[in-house]
């Protein structure tokens, strides 16, 4: 570590260490994601304080996120309060589908932007006025690239991959799989009709993230839903989390 300007010379391959004392040079040394990180931290503190279990659902478009959420809500809403944030570039079609299940939902349209960020989520959470001890499901914009880089303050990311997309997606879009706690392989009912090697897909995902857990589900056929609900309830924040973070 350089004692003069604080830079770490060893980390850089081609660091030109001139120490320009020219007044035309202004040292900044700031993380470009600092602002998002700050909002994410605020969201996380809020969730922890109120014992809200927030999951960030990420996938490519059309993987079945909304269908899985609807089945999940139908199974759990009588036992635990559930809130949903829907992220899409345009339209409130997903929010309408979720609203039909009678749980509170807010649609965020990101317009030209390809991901939700922690600032978006913080505002929407305030508008939703969640009760304590609830679940918040954030359905991110369908995109396997950008949402990986934006922490929203969630407890975990859950990545959904449908068998129609190809078993090599973890290697092609590794950031998303590196960030997720759980991989849900969806549309398992279509497996006989597509060239998708489930074991190979899991092996690729574990190559990137050895700790990733995997569930095989068909949301439309309601197969594997029990295991998924069990996983969700096992990971629900308990008051102990609140005490631990106090």
């Amino acid at each position: 570590m350089c004692g003069h300007c604080g830079c770490d010379k060893s980390e850089m391959e081609s660091h030109e260490h001139h120490h320009q004392h020219d007044e035309k040079i202004i040292q900044i040394e700031q993380d470009i994601f600092a602002e998002n990180q700050m909002y994410a931290k605020q969201n996380r503190e809020y969730f922890t304080h109120h014992n809200i279990t927030a999951f960030n659902f990420v996938s490519s478009p059309g993987s079945g996120k909304t269908t899985l959420l609807i089945k999940t809500i139908q199974a759990l809403k009588s036992s635990v309060p559930i809130y949903v944030l829907e992220g899409d570039q345009q339209t409130d079609r997903d929010a309408q589908k979720i609203a039909a299940t009678k749980v509170p939902v807010i649609q965020i349209n990101t317009g030209q932007v390809c991901h939700l960020d922690a600032h978006h989520v913080g505002h929407a959470v305030m508008d939703l006025a969640l009760v304590d001890n609830s679940f918040l499901f954030i359905e991110n914009v369908g995109n396997l690239v950008c949402p990986a880089l934006f922490d929203l303050g969630e407890l975990s990311k859950i990545v959904i991959l449908s068998v129609t997309e190809g078993d090599d997606k973890p290697l092609k879009y590794p950031y998303m799989f590196a960030e997720a706690a759980l991989l849900i392989i969806n549309k398992m009912d279509l497996l006989p009709y597509v060239d998708f090697d489930v074991e190979q897909c899991i092996a690729y995902a574990k190559q990137i993230n050895p700790a990733i857990q995997v569930l095989e589900v068909s949301a439309t056929q309601e197969k594997g839903i029990e295991s998924w609900l069990q996983w969700l309830l096992q990971h629900q924040m308990t008051p102990e989390h609140v005490f631990a973070s106090a």
Partner: peptide, 30 residues
């Protein structure tokens, strides 16, 4: 890449020490 194995023992479980940086270092003004 994020799916490289350890060059010594071939396992995939490792902590990233550096390589995630995304920072503004400095600027030059007129």
């Amino acid at each position: 890449t994020l799916f490289d194995a350890c060059q010594y023992c071939n396992n995939y479980d490792y902590e990233i020490i550096q390589g995630n940086e995304l920072q503004i270092i400095k600027v030059e003004v007129e």
